[in-house]
Simulated scan of single mutants.
Amino acid sequence: MTRIVHVNGRYLPEDQATVSIFDRGFLMADGVYEVVSVLDGRLLDFEGHMKRLARSLDELGMSHPMTDEEWLEAHRRLIAENDITDGLVYLQVTRGNPGDRDFAYPPKDTPPTVVMFTQSKPGLAENPQADTGLRVCTLPDLRWARRDIKTVQLLYPSMAKMEAKARGCDDAWMVEDGHVTEGTSNNAYIVKDGTIVTRALSDDILHGITRAAVLRLAAEAQLAVEERNFTVEEAKAADEAFVTSASAFVMPVVAIDEAAVGTGAPGPVARRLREIYLDEMRRTAV
């Protein structure tokens, strides 16, 4: 079945969807995006994703093309049109088509381009890697300095993920000045003596929506949390490690640069956080 996608307010088959070659998202990577997970046909942490979308748009001086209510209606329509039970809804907003290529921003009244589509992922919450864990390798963090804005500039993370796979790993943790920043598409954590450690929010990392929820749930479960930088050496000596993201939820990390983390198997803190996170997200989904 051909997917129904959304382009600038129109719902149409994916093979009929087009965007101008002069769109700044295509020419300049001048755009932002969000990915909202779907479980049992409902959206997880939708409000958090909308708040981050608004922040990304504001940081880039872009207009807001839709209200939160309109975004929710569009998400729900795509879920229904494509019969999504478990999966994802991707949305992208670019600065639009000014009519020709130019480094300067177009006038503020240039309509932004809005694209949305779904991805069906049956059994999204039953990912078998949650039982085996990820193996990561470390690579230099060579991205631009505003990683807090969720832009479509994803070439270096893609390069890092491909390098990790070439090394026999599942993903990469990126490193700056000896300290882990984050994964290619996720936030990074270690656990030592029962304390969860993750890098504090700044321009250096994406302000993960799953990160915020997991840290809140960890505090409610009376788990100690420290938001600070940690080194690769600390990570290798940790009792556990894990990552969080909108589509992987809480995913254990069992090896870093071929060195086993802890016992080399998913640890109890990561397992517990994954369970309570999924329970809470299912309870509050819209």
Results as ranks from 00 to 15, higher is better:
R211W: 10
R211Q: 15
L155R: 00
I205E: 05
A164M: 02
R216M: 10
G208A: 08
T198D: 05
D203V: 06
Q153V: 01
D171L: 03
L155K: 00
I205F: 09
R211P: 13
I190R: 06
G194C: 10
R211L: 11
Y156E: 01
M159A: 09
V175E: 05
V197T: 15
N186T: 13
A188W: 07
I209Y: 02
Y156W: 02
M162Q: 15
S158A: 14
P157E: 00
L217D: 12
V197H: 11
L217E: 12
G208N: 03
D170E: 03
C169L: 04
T198H: 09
A172G: 06
L155M: 14
D171F: 02
M159K: 02
N186A: 15
R199P: 09
A166N: 12
D193I: 05
A200H: 15
M174D: 01
G168T: 07
I190Y: 06
M162C: 05
I190N: 06
V191C: 13
M159E: 10
P157M: 04
D203P: 03
N186P: 00
L215I: 14
W173S: 03
S202T: 09
Q153S: 13
T181D: 09
R167Y: 05
L215W: 11
V191P: 13
A213D: 10
D204S: 13
C169I: 00
N186Y: 08
K161P: 00
G178R: 07
V191K: 13
T195M: 08
V175S: 04
